[in-house]
């Protein structure tokens, strides 16, 4: 069994008004050094496979077909073996 930890982030070319609003809020708390907040999604997924490569392929396919929209998002998968 593998645990896929997936980060879905907006592509750099896409404006992230939500990140901007959060950045302003943080600045208003006095943390003026905080720059360029980008919001994303974190997804955990268990994959019942004993083969790391196969699990990676499944996670990748899930990202491409559903979890991320390639028009506006990038994704990153890290795999962890679990019992």
């Amino acid at each position: 069994m593998y645990l896929a930890k997936i980060n879905v982030t907006l592509r750099p070319s896409i404006l992230d008004p939500q990140g901007k609003a959060v950045q302003h809020a943080i600045a208003s708390l006095g943390m003026e050094d905080v720059r360029d907040i980008r919001m994303g999604k974190y997804i955990e997924m268990k994959i019942s496979s004993d083969d790391a490569e196969a699990a990676g392929r499944i996670a990748d396919e899930a990202c491409r077909k559903l979890l991320a929209n390639p028009v506006m998002e990038n994704f990153e998968v890290t795999l962890e073996e679990i019992r």
Binding site: I14, P17, V71, M72
Partner: peptide, 17 residues
């Protein structure tokens, strides 16, 4: 329709949030 690939592009969060 955009998600299904029947139309190009995507609809993202309104600029004013």
């Amino acid at each position: 329709l955009c998600e299904a690939g029947l139309l190009p592009g995507s609809l993202i969060r309104n600029a004013g949030l």
